[in-house]
């Protein structure tokens, strides 16, 4: 466990909490892509099946459970509790465009051809593209609430910190997981454009709106 990993996990948790607080306080999930949140719930579900097969550490188990709970509460808020505020019209990304290639790739390129490994690989590939419906929604409406951009910032920061974590682990432990690293790099690239807008607009007190 290194500082990048811890900070990455904290950013990830913070992002999910920011999103939940935003929805809870405003009693609205306007501007949030329900499809991205369903994908994240699917990511955690397929990745954390090892909760039943292997014990890594108390930290690992507790965080996994918290992530799962947060993801499902978020989906519940969007599709049940505050579904009237959900902007279905603009959440029009076609999920099959992500799910079909990700499923195919997880069968082709994995560490071992076992159900749990394939599901783990599926979750890694899926996580790398799960934010796309959200980014698509923002590009469609042309704007995002400031709190939504904070959510995206911490989610992107988590990925960037994990890259630093892998570089650290490569040098100190000789640990290198190619599937996770390649997907992590791809995922981080998706946030670059957003990071630029966040720094040039949101941090200067302006609302994120696209020309």
């Amino acid at each position: 466990m290194n500082i990048f990993r811890i900070l990455g996990d904290v950013s990830h948790l913070l992002a999910m909490i920011i999103l939940l607080v935003k929805i809870w306080r405003s009693k609205s999930c306007a501007g949030i892509s329900g499809k991205s949140q369903i994908l994240f719930a699917l990511v955690f579900t397929t990745r954390y099946l090892d909760l039943f097969t292997i014990f890594i550490s108390v930290y690992n188990t507790v965080m996994k459970v918290i992530f799962l709970v947060c993801a499902y509460i978020t989906v519940y808020m969007i599709y049940m509790k505050f579904h009237k505020t959900f902007d279905r019209e603009h959440d029009s990304f076609r999920l099959e465009f992500l799910l079909v290639p990700v499923t195919g790739l997880s069968f082709l390129e994995n560490h071992s051809f076992t159900p749990l490994e394939i599901l783990w690989t599926f979750s890694i590939y899926l996580e790398s593209v799960a934010i796309l419906p959200q980014l698509f929604m923002i590009s469609k409406t042309g704007e995002a609430e400031t709190i939504t951009t904070h959510y995206l910032f911490f989610l992107g920061l988590y990925r960037a910190l994990y890259l630093a974590n892998w570089i650290w682990r490569y040098h100190t432990e000789n640990f290198y997981d190619q599937i996770a690293v390649v997907s992590g790099v791809v995922q981080t690239i998706f946030y670059c454009d957003f990071f630029y807008l966040y720094v040039t607009k949101v941090l200067k007190g302006k609302k994120l709106s696209l020309p």
Binding site: R5, H12, T53, H111, S112, T114, N165
Partner: peptide
């Protein structure tokens, strides 16, 4: 079934 690879990250 026990995973062959130890995935210790979140």
């Amino acid at each position: 079934i026990v995973a062959k690879t130890l995935h210790d990250e979140l």
